[in-house]
Amino acid sequence: MVYGNDWWVGSVVRYACRNGFILVGDPTRACQPNGLWTPKPICLRMCQQGIIEINERELNGTCSSTCTNKSYVGPLKQGCSRIDNCTKKETGWKRFFAQCAPCVCDCSISCVSG
């Protein structure tokens, strides 16, 4: 999806992808003085692979003991290039006192095979 309708030199438009896709590249494009646009980002379709358990620190290097709002996008991590919708795994009284919670998250990878 493209946001913006000014197509003159110096104009900037913003790109976004629909659910189930991930944006690869700069989400904005600018019309340069020579009339050419900066590179266009692409939307890469993501395929759900299931649910994984991952330590909260592995997601972004910090521990809040909640897992909520934690996510990851990038090179494969535990077989996933996108990890999101994380919740804290609640099993047993020891989990209540854990500094770095185990998270249960959705795992996705690119639908395009390399």
Rank of each mutant, 00 (worst) to 15 (best):
M1I: 14
M1R: 13
V2M: 12
V2A: 15
Y3A: 13
G4L: 10
G4N: 13
N5A: 08
D6M: 11
W7F: 15
W7A: 14
V9F: 12
V12E: 15
V13M: 03
R14S: 07
R14T: 06
Y15C: 04
R18M: 00
F21H: 04
I22Y: 09
L23H: 01
L23G: 00
L23E: 00
V24T: 15
V24D: 09
V24S: 10
G25C: 13
G25L: 09
P27F: 00
P27W: 01
R29E: 13
R29A: 09
R29P: 03
R29Y: 05
A30L: 14
A30N: 10
C31S: 05
C31A: 01
Q32P: 03
P33Y: 01
N34C: 05
P39W: 00
K40S: 07
K40G: 02
P41M: 01
I42V: 03
I42N: 02
I42F: 09
I42E: 03
C43S: 00
C43G: 00
L44G: 05
L44W: 02
L44I: 10
R45Q: 10
R45A: 09
R45I: 03
M46Y: 11
M46W: 03
C47V: 07
C47R: 11
I51Q: 10
I51V: 11
I52L: 01
I54V: 04
I54E: 00
N55M: 14
N55V: 12
N55Q: 11
E56F: 03
R57A: 14
R57M: 12
L59R: 11
N60Q: 15
N60W: 14
N60L: 10
T62G: 09
T62A: 12
C63A: 07
C63T: 03
C63Q: 06
S65D: 02
S65F: 01
T66S: 11
T66I: 08
K70Q: 09
K70C: 03
K70I: 06
S71F: 04
S71P: 08
S71G: 14
Y72L: 04
Y72H: 02
V73I: 14
V73H: 09
G74T: 03
P75D: 12
Q78P: 00
Q78C: 11
C80F: 01
S81F: 07
S81Q: 14
R82V: 15
I83T: 00
N85T: 06
C86I: 13
K88Q: 04
K88S: 04
K88A: 08
K89D: 08
K89W: 10
K89V: 07
W93H: 15
K94I: 15
F96T: 13
A101T: 01
P102G: 13
P102Y: 08
C103R: 01
C103K: 01
V104K: 06
C105F: 11
D106N: 09
D106I: 13
D106E: 08
S108H: 10
S108Y: 07
S108R: 04
C111H: 07
S113R: 15
G114N: 07
